[in-house]
Simulated scan of single mutants.
Amino acid sequence: MAITIPEDELIESFVRSSGPGGQNVNKVSSAVQLRFDVVASPSLPDEVKERLLKLAGRRATGDGVIVISANRFRDQVQNRSDARARLAELVTQACIRPIKRRPTRPTLGSKQRRLDSKTTRAGVKAGRGKVRMDE
């Protein structure tokens, strides 16, 4: 399923980044905060929205907005593309429909092997009792 998110649904804000950058870190806003309102997005199907919010975890706010902070790189352009790539990865994972588990029953042979091992183990434990001298 190919999903494209229009540019106007993404809100980017630029903040000063911590970490490497020398004197530049105090002057340039190189970190990026990417916000995507999942609930209000018309470009995602409802089932993908639910899975996306579940996958986002603590990156999602109570209002259904995913906030991705990127400050891995020293310049704004790389951080911007990093944040978008991380959002794209989340959306790609949310598009995959999970396979429902079909419950299976144990085979007759596996039941028999289990009971045999229990019997063997019980015999080993029974042999550990106190030795009696009846003779």
Rank of each mutant, 00 (worst) to 15 (best):
A56E: 01
R59Q: 12
D46W: 10
A83E: 09
G57P: 06
P42C: 02
V77R: 12
N79M: 15
V65K: 01
A83N: 10
P42M: 02
F73Y: 13
Q76F: 09
N79F: 14
V48A: 10
A85N: 09
G62W: 12
I66P: 00
A88T: 15
N79R: 13
V48G: 13
A88C: 10
A56S: 04
S43A: 13
R80P: 05
L52N: 04
K54A: 14
A40I: 00
N71E: 15
P45S: 15
N71C: 13
G57K: 10
I66S: 01
I68R: 02
L55V: 01
V77A: 11
A60K: 08
L44N: 01
S41H: 10
A60D: 02
A60E: 02
A56T: 03
L44E: 10
I66M: 02
I66T: 00
G62V: 09
G62Q: 08
K54W: 04
I66L: 03
V48L: 13
F73W: 12
V67T: 12
D82N: 14
A40L: 12
V67C: 15
R59A: 06
G57N: 08
A56K: 06
D75W: 04
S69M: 07
K54R: 09
R84L: 08
L53E: 04
I68F: 09
Q76N: 12
F73S: 09
G62N: 10
T61M: 05
V65D: 01
A60V: 06
L44K: 03
I66W: 03
P45E: 13
A88M: 04
L52E: 03
V77E: 15
V77P: 05
N71R: 14
Q76P: 10
R80H: 15
N79L: 14
D82K: 09
L55A: 03
G57Y: 09
G64E: 02
G57V: 08
S43Y: 02
L52R: 01
Q78T: 13
F73V: 04
T61P: 00
D75A: 05
G57I: 07
R84W: 03
D63V: 05
R74I: 01
G64H: 01
V77S: 11
S43T: 14
V48P: 13
L44T: 03
A56D: 01
R84D: 07
S41T: 06
I66D: 00
E50F: 02
R51S: 05
R86N: 15
L52Y: 03
P45T: 14
A83I: 11
R51F: 07
P45Y: 06
Q78F: 08
D63M: 11
Q76S: 11
R84T: 07
N79A: 14
P42H: 08
A56L: 09
N71P: 07
S69V: 10
V77T: 08
G64T: 00
R51I: 10
S81L: 15
I66V: 04
R86L: 14
F73R: 12
R74D: 00
V65R: 02
R59I: 07
S81D: 15
A85G: 05
L53F: 03
V48N: 12
R74E: 02
V77K: 15
R84K: 13
A60F: 07
A88L: 14
A60C: 09
A88K: 13
G64Y: 02
V67D: 12
A40V: 00
V67W: 03
R80S: 14
R58P: 05
G57S: 04
S41Q: 11
N79C: 15
I66Q: 04
D75Q: 10
A56Q: 06
S81G: 11
L53N: 01
L52S: 06
P42Q: 05
